[in-house]
């Protein structure tokens, strides 16, 4: 279920990271890339359920922790989008992925070499906007506080804590510049195809069996073609 894998670090070397792995007998192996930041937490349980359903249909999958994410002990404040892209490519190689499923802002780090799907992709710049707004609102609650634009401007220069996430200046700049979703050869799966209330919007972590089934069905159908 849980394995470790050697994730490349931007400063050189590797860090041993965890990966959630579902084995299966078929030849298809899916690399699952969750959204960045807040939405990763909101969707983790749901993605695990999708992976479990896929394994029942003979489709193996791996959801690797990238450096600084989830259980990783590498400092988040040292990570960059480009570093995560490199790590995602390495994970694809390590787990022998034949396809990728990138969810929401995970689209920004999907390996270009793999075929697969972008589920409800979101440009990383939008996620940064949400984080800066949350930080601004939380500062306003304690009186005064900065506007979202000021928070981003300061973090861009010096790095900083944005809504509980410690981010480097470099990743702030990368996120800001990622205003579009690059689909490449990947197939976009709109949430309308899955239906139900999008779990990444929920304030509380949720699960939805119907949505998990719908996404697993869709992927299994496409892989069988």
């Amino acid at each position: 279920m849980y394995e470790t894998w050697p994730a490349p670090l931007i400063e050189g070397g590797t860090s041993e990271e965890m990966a959630l792995v579902f084995k299966a007998t078929g030849g298809n192996r899916l690399l699952v890339l969750p959204p960045l930041f807040e939405e990763a937490n909101r969707l983790r349980r749901q993605l695990r359920e999708v992976m479990r359903l896929l394994s029942l249909r003979g489709i193996a999958s791996a959801l690797p922790d990238l450096p600084g994410c989830n259980e990783s002990i590498a400092p988040l404040g040292k990570q960059t989008l480009s570093g995560w892209r490199t790590a995602a490519v390495a994970a694809a190689g390590h787990f022998g992925a034949t396809h990728v499923l990138a969810v929401r802002t995970g689209a920004a780090i999907a390996p270009a070499e793999l075929p697969g799907w972008l589920y409800a992709p979101q440009a990383p710049a939008r996620a940064l906007t949400s984080l800066a707004r949350a930080q601004s609102l939380s500062e306003a609650e304690t009186g005064g506080g900065r506007q979202p634009a000021e928070i981003i401007a300061e973090a861009r220069e010096y790095g900083g804590h944005v809504a509980g996430w410690t981010l480097s200046g470099e990743i702030i700049r990368e996120l800001e510049q990622s205003t579009d979703v690059q689909t490449g050869y990947l197939v976009v799966v709109d949430h309308e195809e899955i239906g139900g209330s999008p779990l990444w919007l929920r304030a509380e972590i949720g699960e939805d069996a119907d949505q998990a089934q719908a996404l697993a069905d869709l992927l299994a159908r496409e892989l069988a073609r």
């Binding site: 807040e38 949400s130 984080l131 949350a134 609102l137 809504a163 304030a203």
Partner: peptide, 11 residues
């Protein structure tokens, strides 16, 4: 509806 939820709502 905490600050993160409001931010999500606005976006």
């Amino acid at each position: 509806l905490d600050s993160m939820a409001v931010a999500t709502l606005l976006t």
